[in-house]
Design a protein around this nucleic acid. Structure first.
Lengths: 153, 153
DNA sequence: CCTTGCGTTGGAGCGCGCTCGAAGCCATAG
DNA sequence: CTATGGCTTCGAGCGCGCTCCAACGCAAGG
């Protein structure tokens, strides 16, 4: 089911860092919610610093509305964007690539093929990273075993 | 079999970057080989720059003998150490942690328990990284599918 | 013999991704 | 009414991991 897949993707996107529920996030991402976050709340939920959030905005990765006092209010659009940004960052995408992708998104539907290229490239990078790490894990486990199963050499 | 495990670990350690055979590397690592590498050869086999190799030596990750002309000759001990260093680096271990581990190695057998602690911590880190990346991969594949299976929203 | 090329050293520089400081605004608590 | 604390902006600073530069040495090929 498509909704299940979306649910999974969202779960993956936010489960580890903090305490927000997947259901609530889905509401936010769908735009079903009126809730907006201040910078401290957003920083907490995405497990990054307020400094980093301002930095992302400064370099044009997203734009965030302000309230009457000029304070940032992270609405569902901003939160949706941050879900994507943090996921890509965690998976090792460079900020420059992220910027390229986001520029494509804002360029409209014509950029879909180019976005697909970027995503598929990133997918391959992820697969390679996973393979590398699995090899490293195997080597590390071997080393641990060689220390524990026998007197050290 | 233990030798198979070692073979696997070594294969993992050097196969992707360059063209050296696993068998030859095993010889080198065992100390069975007389072969020594100059810095360019080592850089090539480990797929890093000569600059980085000098840097590793400068910060004390390894020591490398010199020939009569003062040029570095990477012998089997240095190569063995580099196999470990590059594997740990590729798997995301910070250089500072690598230094701590190597200091323990050079402190002698008494440090084995401390080394095990470090290795097990690293193993856990690797497992977490792999999990994260698999989630990112799933999210990316979902996004690709949503672009290709239907008209873009 | 001399050029070409790879090596050496110490130290400075750089790109990335934040991270922090200074100066100031606004709001709520005492 | 004021003080505290969290937010704002702009710009500078920083830690990591290299990366490069300058000045020089040696060595094999033409």
């Amino acid at each position: 089911m498509e909704l299940d897949a979306l649910s999974d993707a969202l779960r993956l996107a936010v489960d580890p860092p903090s305490g927000i529920g997947v259901a609530e996030l889905q509401d936010l991402v769908r735009g079903d919610s009126e809730e907006e976050w201040d910078i401290a709340t957003a920083a907490h939920h995405f497990n990054i610093s307020p400094h980093a959030l301002r930095y992302y905005e400064r370099i044009g990765l997203l734009s965030v509305p302000r309230n009457s006092a000029g304070h940032r209010r992270y609405d569902s659009a901003a939160i949706r964007r941050l879900v994507f940004i943090t996921r890509m960052r965690v998976s090792g995408m460079a900020i420059a690539d992220l910027q390229r992708y986001i520029d494509l998104v804002e360029a409209g539907p014509d950029s879909v093929p180019a976005r697909l290229d970027l995503l598929m490239e990133h997918r391959d990078t992820l697969r390679n990273q996973i393979t590398q790490l699995q090899l490293s894990l195997a080597a590390t486990e071997y080393k641990i075993a060689s220390y524990t199963e026998r007197p050290p050499t």
